[in-house]
Design a protein around this nucleic acid. Structure first.
Lengths: 176, 176
DNA sequence: GTGCAAACGGAGAAGTTCTCCGTATTATAG
DNA sequence: CTATAATACGGAGAACTTCTCCGTTTGCAC
């Protein structure tokens, strides 16, 4: 890869990170290119679709989130590790508006599959929690994600979202 | 209101219903105007914002949904009436992509507040269910909506969404 | 009928995404 | 160190969007 190409690519990702943080994942690609100091053509050559750009931006964040899972699994009993990780994921998802949508909507892209990485990470935690009898055995990983991203979509407020997650974990029916 | 104005207004709503059903709530307003056989200016005069147009489109549906609540309340015990209505709402919300977003995002508009109508309807069912001890007493109406619309956002498939709702009702933890 | 208030609709301004292609830059071979 | 070929650049512009303005047409009350 040529030096100027690499440099431009990095500048576009940096600009995209900033602009998406400000305006969400629907931010204008022209604006991102302008801030990166490149022409629109350059942006589109490096990232033919918006999805690929978003995937590049979020790659680092997702990897951080998944790395945390191992620490949690080592430090807590399986059931608690899972719920703690779900809360962590919820927090990450809320940090940038649209991360949730991005993660669920974006398929495998350019040699990095956010979704698959998250799924295998969550899958390990879930299986362990189920083996320990802490979580209902018929629960699927996909369902976990869908509930979390659904909650994240419903409110931007972290305490509020955490409350919704608790409700979901415990159920809406009255305890008796 | 002049006859031609009324006629055009109705045609725009009819066209919007069709186009939104096909393309979701982000459908092009130009396309809606074209199909209604009016100019863009006419559409914008009747509905200055997209929100007002969407509110008009969904008004009828929401009223139908809320009317069903009374029938349910009369026919079933409070707890079952609530869960049945939640399933009905989920179904309605899934029927048109974006109804969920529309209902939650759109505030009071043009003398009709989708959100308030839904809230008071659901509030009645919820209070009754709580009084009967079927639902946890700390649950808020808003939370109910947020969970439902979150689920609807997570998947367009009704059986799948219904399963997520069941999970939420019963909780993710293992029964023991 | 006739007049005027009201509504119409299209042109167009300003924004978007995305493409094409002539120009400029870079790496490399001699 | 220079010449060349491959590569990347970036701006112009096409096709779309939302939304506004205003000259023209229409319906209704008198």
């Amino acid at each position: 890869m040529r030096a100027d190409a690499r440099r431009n690519r990095d500048q576009v990702i940096a600009a995209a990170t900033a602009v998406i943080a400000e305006e969400g994942p629907d931010a204008s690609l022209n604006e991102i290119a302008r801030r990166a100091g490149v022409g629109p053509g350059t942006l589109y050559r490096h990232f033919p679709t918006r999805r690929e750009l978003i995937a590049a931006v979020f790659r680092e964040r997702v990897e951080t989130l998944c790395a945390g899972a191992d620490r949690l699994a080592a430090a807590s009993p399986p059931g608690e590790a899972l719920t703690a990780w779900m809360r962590a994921m919820l927090k990450h998802v809320l940090t940038d508006r649209g991360l949730a949508t991005a993660m669920m909507d974006i398929g495998p892209v350019a040699g990095f599959d956010c979704h698959a990485l998250l799924r295998s990470t969550a899958g390990r935690l879930l299986t362990a929690a189920q083996a320990a009898g802490a979580v209902r055995p018929d629960l699927q990983v996909e369902e976990l994600f869908q509930l979390i991203t659904g909650i994240a979509h419903a409110t931007p407020d972290l305490p509020h979202a955490t409350r919704l997650l608790s409700l979901t974990l415990e159920g809406l029916h009255a305890p008796h």
